[in-house]
């Protein structure tokens, strides 16, 4: 009996396989044909800044980013007649991507009169379906310059030069966990030639935590926090925090946020944020960033 049911089973199986190969499996055949070329994750973040600091993203070759970053805040106990906010700090920025992985940029902020420049290089790219490359890593080196008169005089020694510089080196490490969620950790090193009069460190270490969560296809909630390991001693500083919304409108990226950071240069917002994050004047800063993306090179089709 057992020996007789066996061939019937084979027959049934054959029928099934025969019909399925005819109908459905053209697409399955095509699935096998798809090439296994490595694919990289795109848009871990949609903007080259999460909010305060850089994100791992760089623009593609030949892209010019024109940016306008603003922070607005109120001054306490003043008879101000201003509409909206008493004070504003605006950074005018330009950056250009020489290759898909390498970007150079500079900017000038009008309130603290700091000029800054940076180079940014995408070192490692996260891959799709590949455990060998689960992360993206981008290196950023930035430099900021201010005249001694405009600098926080506690921090810089008056002696040598009128021109005061700070240097910030960052390794940005990010992973896109899902289409919605991306997280970034940014170990940062800030160097500044300090005044000899106090015990401020010349070299400061900080670590940044940032993330975005998409709430729909064009909008995401972002947050960032920088923890400073060895803060300066001569002035009270606080770790900078930001929460906001990033909104993509075609070639224009808009960012709205609340933060306690007033400055834009990396060294200043990481190590010199002089107010805590709360809703009292002048601690609360409303930020509005607009970035326009211009393609200087366009592909042509035959």
């Amino acid at each position: 009996m057992k020996n007789r049911t066996h061939p019937f089973l084979i027959l049934v199986l054959l029928f099934v396989s025969h019909f399925s190969t005819n109908a459905q499996d053209l697409l399955k055949k095509l699935d096998k044909e798809h090439k296994d070329t490595p694919q990289y994750k795109i848009a871990t973040f949609k903007t080259t800044r999460i909010g305060l600091g850089h994100s791992i993203e760089t623009r593609k070759k030949g892209t010019l980013e024109i940016s306008l970053y603003n922070r607005y805040w109120d001054k306490p106990n003043t008879q101000s007649q201003r509409f909206l906010a008493d004070e504003v700090n605006t950074r005018y920025g330009l950056s250009y991507s020489f290759s898909n992985d390498f970007t150079v940029g500079f900017g000038y902020a009008n309130f603290d009169k700091i000029s800054d420049g940076f180079i940014k290089y995408k070192l490692v790219k996260q891959r799709v379906h590949d455990k060998k490359s689960p992360l993206s890593i981008t290196l950023v080196q930035s430099l900021s310059h201010r005249k001694f008169d405009n600098a926080n005089t506690n921090l810089y020694s008056p002696s040598s030069s009128e021109n005061k510089y700070s240097f910030t080196t960052q390794a940005l490490i990010a992973r896109k966990f899902s289409p919605e969620l991306s997280l970034q950790i940014s170990p940062s090193f800030v160097y500044r030639a300090s005044s000899n009069n106090n015990n401020n460190p010349n070299a400061q270490f900080a670590i940044g935590f940032g993330g975005r969560h998409k709430i729909n296809t064009h909008t995401s909630i972002v947050s960032e926090y920088f923890y400073v390991v060895n803060p300066v001693k001569s002035i009270d500083t606080f770790n900078s925090f930001l929460i906001g919304i990033n909104w993509e409108v075609s070639d224009l990226m808009l960012q709205f946020h609340l933060t306690n950071a007033r400055n834009f240069a990396e060294d200043t917002f990481i190590t010199e944020t002089a107010n805590n994050f709360n809703f009292k004047d002048p601690n609360l800063h409303f930020g509005f960033n607009a970035t326009f993306i211009l393609h200087t090179k366009k592909r042509t089709f035959k």
Partner: peptide
Amino acid sequence: KIAVSMLMRAFVFKKDLMYEHFNESYVESD
């Protein structure tokens, strides 16, 4: 019968930003 299969990520655009938006914000190729 005919069958067609294509990867959305293989589309090439005139502007690189369009590529990102197409994949990320519209067809959600992830």
